[in-house]
């Protein structure tokens, strides 16, 4: 049986340092620290739970959960990410997960050749240096209603853990990395605001392993408090489900109004 050896979550943007160098560097240091910790765990595969930003899935098509089954992914190249950044995939793991979930009443969509935008590529830059460590992208829909509920996301994380533990080769080591959040508002009037109090409340919930509070949140509540971008919290909750609701440590938090985002990263011990 395989083993989930670690769980992490991180915001998934990087912008200009100008005007807020100290905060920007603290965020970058935090992402690097997450990368170092992932390296130290020597995982064979990193499952990255994140969302697209209207580049691969837009208002023409959205699905609640979509798994990448490609052997290789090439970054779209937004936000200055090199558009030749190429990341190894893990089709066998991905297909197996889809079948495992299907047998347990979760039907997941598949995508073969997405061009990962920053949502998937920024965490990959730290989780899979030079794209050498295989990733399995798990995309969530946070853009069009209905968005999957927090409880349903947590349960999907549990199914992922069950798959690794019962359906994968002996000694396979898997890290789960949730990406996105925390509070931010995109393309709406409140753009630029950060709800630091709510972000810190969320981080405390992860620190104490308060699964009940996190999985009781409705999407509407999250959007009201943390913005339409803050709904990316569901990516963290899937990761938490995969880690069995274990307690987290906050690696970094910066309420970066300059980046229009509450920037945060956590580590969960397996």
């Amino acid at each position: 049986m395989g083993k989930i050896v670690g769980g992490f979550a991180t915001s998934h943007v990087l912008f200009s340092r100008t005007g807020h160098e100290k905060q920007a560097d603290a965020v970058f240091d935090g992402m690097e620290e997450i990368g170092r910790r992932i390296d130290a765990l020597s995982p064979d595969i990193v499952v990255i739970v994140s969302n697209d930003h209207m580049l691969n899935f837009n208002t023409q098509f959205q699905a609640p959960f979509v798994v990448g089954i490609g052997a290789r992914y090439t970054a779209f190249g937004d936000l200055g990410i090199p558009n030749d950044y190429s990341i190894a995939g893990e089709p066998d793991f991905a297909q197996g997960f889809i079948e495992h979930a299907n047998a347990r009443d979760y039907d997941l969509g598949v995508v073969r050749e997405p061009r990962p935008d920053h949502g998937m590529a920024i965490p990959s830059l730290f989780a899979s240096p030079r794209g050498a460590r295989p990733i399995v992208p798990l995309y969530t829909n946070v853009d069009m209603r209905p968005v999957p509920s927090t409880r349903r996301c947590y349960r999907l994380g549990q199914l992922l853990a069950d798959y690794v533990e019962t359906g994968r080769p002996a000694d396979e080591r898997v890290v789960v990395l949730g990406a996105g959040g925390l509070s931010h508002w995109i393309g709406v009037e409140q753009q630029g605001e950060v709800n630091e109090a709510y972000d810190r409340w969320l981080l405390e919930r992860f620190e104490v392993g308060d699964v009940e509070a996190l999985t009781s949140l409705t999407i509407e509540e999250i959007e009201a408090a943390a913005g339409n971008g803050g709904v990316e919290l569901i990516n963290w909750i899937i990761m938490l489900g995969a880690l069995g609701g274990a307690k987290a440590h906050t690696i970094y938090y910066e309420p970066m109004t300059g980046w229009w985002t509450g920037m945060a990263g956590i580590a969960v011990d397996a």
Binding site: F15, S16, R17, E32, R130
Partner: peptide, 19 residues
Amino acid sequence: RNFLAIDPVHGARLAGKGK
């Protein structure tokens, strides 16, 4: 557009991470 992009200082620290 210029603001919403990885800062060159951070990009340099990512050298070797991308292909």
